[in-house]
Every structure is written in structure tokens, then in C-alpha cells.
Amino acid sequence: MNYQFDFSSVLTGVYGSYFLTGVRTTFLLFVICWFLAFALGIVLVTLGRIKFWPLNFLVRFYVEYHRNVPLLVQLLFWYFAIPQIFPSVITDWINLRNSEFVYAMIALSLYSSSYISENIRSGLRAIPPVQFEAAEAMGFSQFGTMIWIIIPQAWRHALPALIGDSIGLFKGTAIASVIGVAELTYQTEQIESATFRVFEVFTLASLVYLSVTIPMMILGDYAGRRFAIRSSR
């Protein structure tokens, strides 16, 4: 083997700054999307429990669309198709604020919220129905019951699955490179094109992803075992 490994060439100078920029953008995109997806997931679960069939239909359609259409298609739809129907004032406002990042953020948040809502909904099944009745008897509204009583309990049962959703979202940020978001995968490809150090740059990128996903996976396994033990008791 005649290949000479040289990691320093892709970690120093301008290429090192590119790599760090990619890491920061990936984490920023992940954190923003996680909070948006989690908030929207709670809203979806709450709306889905309201006994009004047109609303229930819309919630189910939303969830099934985002769970069954490939994320890449959804991302490209937001980036290329949706701006065509927006008023020009909105399109111009988004274009002045890093439109690639904004549309990637929207697509990833909507996509992840559908999975989060389903896992929270599964966690609700572990809550005894009597708690809903007790909350209603105490004067809580349906929305208040969900927010203050039911969801704080349900998320513990859904936690392992929610951590899995978080892992999927973190890995999913890589797809934003398709529309030019300068996250880790995009910057890795740019460095590789300039240096031809394929092994080095993709090894480093893989290590960054693994340094986040493996601890999250261990946390999810721990949470699953801990709450399974509590449930059995």
C-alpha cells in the first residue's frame, strides 16, 4: 500500500476552519430542529386526541405524509416548490436569511415531528385512562390535561424511542448538504474535492457523527432498561 496518510493537511489552515464550520452548523441545525420538532410533536398529539374527525384526519395525513415520503423529496419540495407559491415578500425575507438553512430546518423539523408525535402517542397508551377522568373532574381542559399531567408521564415511557428519533435527526442533518447547507457533510465534500484526501476527511466526519450518536444510543438503551424495570414494579 503506497497511500500516505496525512490528517494534519485537512485539520489545519483553511481546511480546518471549514471542518469546524461544518461541525458548528450541524449542531446548530440539529438543536433548532430538535426543539421545533418536539414542540410540534406535542401539539400534534394533543390535537389528535380532540374528538373532531376533520382535525383527526388532518393530523393523521400530516403524520403519514412525513413518515412515508422520503426526507430527500420533502427537502427538495420545500427548497424548490414551496417558494414558488409564497408571496414575494416572504421569499425575499427568507433569501436574505440563508434560505438553504431555513428550508432545511423546516423540512427536518416537520419530518422529525411526525415520528416524535407517534412515539409520544405510544407512551400515552401506558397512562391509565382514570388519570384523564380525574384531570377532567378537577377542571382541567383537554389541552391542560395533556400538557401538565399526561405528557410529563408519557415521555418517560417514550424516552428510549425519542432518543432514537434524536439520533435519526442528527444523522438526517447530513441531507441538508444536497441544497448547499454548509454543514459537516457538505464541508467534508468540499475539503475532499480540494485536497483529494478522501480517507482522512471522511474518517474525521464519521468520528464526529459517532461521537454523538453512540453516547445517545447508550443513553437510550439505559433509559429503556431503567423505565422497563420501573414499569415492571
Rank of each mutant, 00 (worst) to 15 (best):
F101H: 03
V102R: 04
V102D: 06
Y103H: 13
Y103M: 14
Y103E: 07
Y103F: 15
Y103Q: 11
Y103G: 08
Y103I: 06
A104K: 02
A104I: 05
A104S: 13
A104L: 07
M105V: 08
M105H: 00
M105Y: 01
I106K: 02
I106H: 05
I106E: 01
L108P: 01
L108G: 04
S109R: 04
S109C: 09
S109Q: 04
S109A: 13
S109I: 06
Y111V: 03
S112A: 13
S112Y: 06
S112G: 05
S113A: 15
S113Q: 10
S114W: 03
S114R: 01
S114K: 04
Y115K: 09
Y115N: 08
Y115M: 08
Y115I: 08
Y115P: 06
I116K: 03
S117W: 03
E118D: 13
E118R: 14
N119A: 08
N119F: 13
N119K: 12
N119M: 12
I120R: 00
I120A: 01
R121H: 10
S122V: 15
S122P: 12
G123W: 01
G123Q: 03
G123R: 02
L124Q: 01
L124Y: 02
R125H: 14
R125S: 14
R125N: 13
R125I: 11
A126I: 11
A126W: 08
A126G: 12
P128T: 01
P128K: 05
P128C: 05
P129I: 10
P129T: 12
V130P: 03
V130N: 13
Q131S: 14
Q131R: 11
F132A: 06
F132M: 08
F132K: 01
A134R: 10
A134V: 15
A135R: 00
E136A: 14
E136V: 05
E136N: 14
E136W: 12
A137W: 08
A137R: 09
A137K: 08
A137Y: 09
A137M: 11
M138Q: 14
M138S: 15
M138A: 15
G139P: 07
G139D: 09
F140T: 02
F140V: 02
F140I: 05
S141V: 02
Q142G: 12
Q142I: 13
F143E: 10
F143D: 05
F143C: 11
F143N: 10
G144S: 14
G144K: 07
T145W: 00
T145H: 00
M146W: 02
I147Y: 07
I147E: 01
I147Q: 08
I149S: 07
I149W: 00
I149F: 06
I149D: 01
I149N: 07
I150H: 01
I150L: 09
I150P: 00
I151W: 04
I151D: 03
I151S: 03
P152N: 08
P152I: 05
P152F: 04
Q153R: 15
Q153V: 11
Q153W: 10
A154M: 07
A154K: 00
